[in-house]
Every structure is written in structure tokens, then in C-alpha cells.
Amino acid sequence: MTSTVDNILLAYFGLLAIASYVAYATDPTQLQDFCVGINDPKAELFVNGLFCKNPADVTPEDFLFKGLDIPRNTDNKLGSNVTQVFAAQLPGLNTLGVAVGRIDYAPYGLNPPHTHPRATEVLTVLEGTLFAGFVTSNLPSGGNKLFPIVLHKGDVFVFPQGLIHFQLNVGKTPAVAVVAFSSQSPGVITIANAIFGAKPPISVDVLSKAFQLDDVVIKHLESLFWPSTS
């Protein structure tokens, strides 16, 4: 398992690092949900990214993350667990525009519908069988198209940036996948958690009309615990 993970991650880093050097005549991609401008930088300062370490103090360990071959605990309501290797966990990724991770799935475990507002995701199945898919944004003709697929060991699938997607382990044994992102800070919005678990909560009037559900049903959904994903 370790050699397989190492080989795939090495290939991911190579391809995505090359892509990160392509220059575009646009503003840089944001690394947080918002960055409100202020006139007095002495009052508040929040960097859109991370401060840079003095190059003279950089070591090989700054570019190393260990343990992506270690299975994570999936004993939770969703039956899945995500190991992030973003700039926060691997400082050497800062400013390179890439990140990776590992997803462990219990039998029939789910990585629930979610989006990454700042990154496209490339998923490779290492073990098990996954039912996965993504949904388009609103189409000009109306509606949203689902792209469903069953993935097996060795399959690679792409989830376009910002689109809702999911994976479900449809096997009786644990499944494992590794993922690569086109941002050091992909962000994640877990749909159910964001809608029914927001603090303060979204108005029942808004949600009942949006989902065409009775107020009692909306209140029940808001009372549930909604775990997040990454």
C-alpha cells in the first residue's frame, strides 16, 4: 500500500506543480472565503495565505508529510474520514497551488455531497469500489445534470471546481482513495451541514419555501447533528 500511495502522490505533485507555473492575466485565486479590505493595515492584518519562512532557514522537512499510508478511523455517522495534506499540514506547499489528501471509507461509508469552491479535485481509487458523481451548475435549459459512475481500484475521476460531488463505498470491505487539488486551500462546503447546520440558523421560512417542506420537517432537520467533510 505504501509504495502505491507514494507513486501516485509523486505523479500528482509532478503534474500539478507544472500546472501551477502557468501564468494567467487575472487576479490570484483567493485562499479564504473572503478578505475584507481595510484602510489601516496597522489595525488588522490577515494574509491571504501564509507568511513565508526565511529561505535561509528552510529545511527538507518543510516539504515533507509523513503518514498518508496510515488508515484513519471511520467510526462515525458517515463512515468516512479525510486526511488533509494542505499548506497548513505541509508548509512547503504554500504558494504552489496544489494539495493532496487521503479518504478512508468504512463498508458503505459516505463522503457526503460537498463542493470545493477553490479547486478541481482528482480522485484515484486505491482499494475498494466507489459510487461517485458530480452535479452541474444550473443549465440554460433548466435543471442540473448528474454525472454518476462506479469506480474501481486504479480508476481516476475528476470533480470540476465548485461543483457538488460525493463518493459512496458500495462494497462490504473498506475503501481508500487519494485526492489531489488544484489549490493549496481548496475549501469545502458540506451541503447538508451548511444548509441545516448554519450558526445562526437559516430562517425556517426560507428553507421551507426553498425545499417545499413543512416547517416541522425543517426544524427537525436543523436539530440534527450534521458532520462536516473535507
Rank of each mutant, 00 (worst) to 15 (best):
M1D: 05
L9G: 00
A11F: 02
Y12F: 15
F13L: 13
L15I: 12
L16W: 10
A17H: 12
A19S: 10
Y21P: 00
Y21F: 10
Y24L: 06
Y24E: 07
Q32D: 14
D33M: 04
C35D: 14
V36M: 09
K42E: 10
V47Y: 02
N48W: 02
F51S: 11
C52P: 00
N54H: 08
T59W: 04
F63A: 09
K66E: 13
K66P: 07
L68A: 09
P71K: 07
P71V: 10
P71C: 08
N73A: 15
K77E: 15
L78M: 15
S80Q: 10
N81R: 15
V85P: 07
F86R: 12
F86N: 14
A87F: 11
L90G: 07
L90P: 11
P91L: 15
G92I: 14
N94E: 13
T95V: 15
L96H: 06
G97M: 05
V98Q: 07
V100Q: 03
G101P: 05
D104C: 12
A106D: 12
P107R: 01
G109Y: 04
N111T: 06
N111A: 09
P112T: 09
P112N: 05
H116S: 03
P117Y: 06
L123I: 11
V125P: 03
V125I: 10
G128T: 02
G128K: 02
F134V: 02
F134L: 03
S137R: 02
L139I: 11
P140L: 07
S141Q: 11
S141T: 14
G143S: 09
L146C: 12
F147W: 00
L151W: 01
H152E: 11
V158H: 08
P160H: 03
P160E: 04
F166R: 00
K172C: 09
T173I: 08
P174H: 11
A175I: 12
S183F: 11
A192N: 12
F196G: 03
G197K: 08
K199W: 06
P200N: 07
P201A: 10
P201D: 10
D205N: 13
D215A: 08
V216F: 07
V217D: 14
K219I: 00
K219V: 00
S223N: 10
L224Q: 14
L224I: 11
F225Q: 15
W226R: 14
